[in-house]
């Protein structure tokens, strides 16, 4: 039995973005990991890209034949944990939605 392509495996668990989608975007637009994120929502889900960011960067660097840079393309932005408007307004003990 021939092994099917791995392209339909999920890379970004939060937004269910597949490896194939990410590869297609990089090939088509010759773009950075940041642009991949904006175009596919990979790394933009609930976890803030904590889980999949290194994989997205790896795939982009491999396809574009780049070396890993010191300053990561997918920098973190606050809030780095989901917060409520209540918390942003200063109230305590609120939930994480």
């Amino acid at each position: 039995m021939v092994v099917k392509s791995d392209d339909n495996k999920i890379i970004c668990r939060c937004e269910e973005v597949s490896l194939g989608t990410i590869k297609d975007i990089v090939h088509h637009f010759h773009c950075s990991s940041r642009e991949v994120k904006l175009r596919t929502r990979a790394g933009m889900g609930y976890c803030g890209g904590r889980i999949c960011r290194t994989i997205i960067e790896k795939v982009v660097q491999d396809i574009n034949n780049e070396k890993v840079s010191n300053e990561s393309q997918l920098s973190y932005r606050p809030p780095i944990r989901p917060v409520t408007f209540g918390q942003l307004g200063g109230s305590e003990n609120d939930d994480e939605s």
Partner: peptide, 23 residues
């Protein structure tokens, strides 16, 4: 979906508690 990282990094295990809080 179930527990994936078990230390709060992945947010896969979020549930609703007492009909108000998502944790």
């Amino acid at each position: 979906r179930g527990v994936y990282c078990n230390i709060g990094h992945c947010f896969e295990c979020r549930v609703c508690v007492n009909e108000e809080k998502i944790v």
